[in-house]
Design a binder for these strands. Structure first.
Length: 407
DNA sequence: CGTCCACAGGAATGACGGGCGG
DNA sequence: CCGCCCGTCATTCCTGTGGACG
């Protein structure tokens, strides 16, 4: 019977210690019934939106806080409760949650808003202004109080500007039968610097700041969730503490803490352990980072890969833009790809930097110009692994650029 | 103390694939 | 099918600049 290597895997999965009760609870999009240490914010947001229950428009609100401080969770929590209350009181309230970064463009944001007032909008083809007009008329006809939640709105403003925000904040002036309130959520506390003062003041009739969690608070959050997520007594005290401590060090990111704990649980389960230990959390940390990088590498475009390979080939503590361009130039020739300008390469390098694959900072070398110093941020072994598996790149991995050999 | 290197990085513009309404 | 508009990627042209060298 025991004829396959899988038997072990399956058997230990079924018979081995079951650690999880419900691992979904540890996903960061899970909305718990209690949000520890956010009672104040919940009350404040709640009292701000409460007027809609009497069919009055509520103030616009701006919410600040770094990632994993519970902004999204609190907003969704309050609004879902508001929604059921509104049914109870028969208030004509509807809300629409849009994550601006995921949604991508102002066009798609307006499309999403339109959809939630019952319009269907083609995912491309119309002008932004047209979509906005349709949204406005559609909204007005629905005769409702409409609450718009724009999550991660900073992402959109930074690369599209705030013109669309201006339109949105002024929309009430042209509505007869509906009213709009806006809840903006930003990860960047300096967002006001990017905003037209008129937009900013109208947007932040109320402001709400989310402080990062400290290690103790994170510990409480994890404790609450782990009661639902794990079997009793499976999670060690030390695993709990180290998860909170690691996440607290990373600007108090609860999302991070939950990820660590979930992956640690998976690691422990796979190892057939009876409990989740500190060591499992440490492995989870590596595991998460490893996956993140591999995923990022795979999704790079052709030229970004070539640029990264160029940095790899230079193989020194820091290379300049010019050096990289030389190697990149050769690599392009080697694989017969058309080459991009140095200007373009420069922005590709910046992208690699924000992804954390590479470290780039501008330095001046005085008489010898001004350039970016670029260093690989990930292990060379990882690059070998990922690119070695790809036929198109395995050759380039071994290729020795000529420009590196002239004295 | 000015020069001048080797780029940085903004702005404007264009090519391209995709999708619309008419 | 056309004319129009979209977002994305890329090019071209450009002005700006920290600081070692002379």
């Amino acid at each position: 019977m025991g004829n396959s290597i899988l038997d072990d895997v399956f058997d230990s999965f079924v018979n081995g210690a079951k650690l999880f009760k419900d691992r979904e609870v540890l996903r960061h999009d899970y909305l718990p019934e209690k949000l520890p240490h956010r009672e104040d914010q919940i009350r404040l947001l709640g009292s701000t939106v409460a007027p809609v229950l009497k069919n009055a428009r509520c103030s616009n609100i701006f919410i600040y806080g770094k990632t994993g401080t519970g902004k999204t969770a609190v907003a969704k929590y309050v609004l879902s409760h508001l929604e059921s209350k509104a049914k109870e009181y028969g208030a004509q309230v509807r809300f629409c949650y849009v994550n601006c970064r995921m949604t991508g463009s102002e066009y798609r944001v307006f499309a999403a808003l339109s959809q939630s007032v019952g319009l269907s909008i083609p995912f491309t083809g119309l002008s932004v202004g047209e979509v906005f007009d349709r949204f406005r008329t559609g909204l007005d006809q629905s005769r409702i109080i409409f609450i718009i939640v724009l999550d991660e709105v900073d992402a959109l403003i930074k690369d599209r500007g705030d013109a669309f925000m201006y339109e949105l904040t002024r929309i009430n002036e042209t509505l007869r039968q509906s009213k709009v309130s806006i809840i903006g959520i930003s990860n960047d506390l300096r967002l006001k610097e990017f905003l037209d003062p008129r937009v900013f003041s109208s947007l932040s009739e109320e402001e709400l700041v989310f402080r990062p969690y400290d290690a103790g608070e994170l510990r409480n959050i994890l404790l609450e969730r782990s009661k639902l997520a794990f079997q009793d007594g499976v999670l060690s005290e030390s695993a709990l503490s180290i998860s909170s401590a690691l996440a607290a060090a990373e600007h108090g990111d609860a999302r991070r803490a939950l990820d660590l704990l979930r992956v640690a649980g998976e690691v422990a389960e796979r190892a057939g352990a009876k409990a989740v230990t500190e060591e499992h959390v440490r492995q989870a940390e590596k595991h998460i980072e490893h996956n993140r990088v591999i995923e990022a590498l795979k999704n790079l475009t052709l030229h970004s890969k070539l640029v990264l390979l160029s940095v790899y080939h230079l193989n020194k503590s820091s290379a300049s833009t010019g050096e990289i361009y030389e190697v990149y130039n050769e690599l392009c020739g080697e694989m017969g790809a058309g080459l991009l300008t140095q200007r373009r390469l420069s922005t590709l390098v910046n992208e690699l930097d924000t992804m954390g694959l590479v470290n780039a900072r501008v330095v001046s070398m005085g008489r010898y110009g001004r350039t970016k110093k670029i260093r690989l941020e990930i292990s060379r072994g990882l690059i070998k692994d990922v690119f070695g598996d790809d036929n198109r790149f395995s050759e380039l991995l071994k290729y020795e650029p000529k420009c590196l050999h002239k004295e």
